[in-house]
């Protein structure tokens, strides 16, 4: 079954009133990185995922989750 990586970056970013450009500067990455990850176009490395978590002050597992057929995948 195909697994997809979902994220809640937009939710937490907008809750802080930040633009993608501002988040990118907080993380020290390009705005393209923020944009493509937020829109699910690109699956980030662990390093970038941790940068998202640090910048948004959230645990990684709150920002990213694996889903199968639209449902969050239970851990084995």
């Amino acid at each position: 079954m195909p697994e997809t990586l979902e994220n809640r970056i937009r939710h937490f970013r907008e809750a802080r009133g930040w633009t993608q450009a501002h988040l990118a500067e907080e993380m020290g990455v390009s705005r393209k990185t923020v944009n493509t990850v937020e829109n699910g176009v690109f699956s980030p490395s662990l390093i970038v995922a941790l940068k998202f978590a640090a910048a948004l002050d959230q645990p990684v597992e709150r920002l990213f989750s694996l889903t199968v057929d639209g449902r969050e995948k239970p851990w084995d």
Binding site: V29, S30, K32, T33, T36, F42, P44, S45, V48
Partner: peptide, 10 residues
């Protein structure tokens, strides 16, 4: 470094 970000490298 910013121009050659992770997305660009992929």
């Amino acid at each position: 470094e910013l121009a050659n970000d992770e997305v660009t490298r992929a």
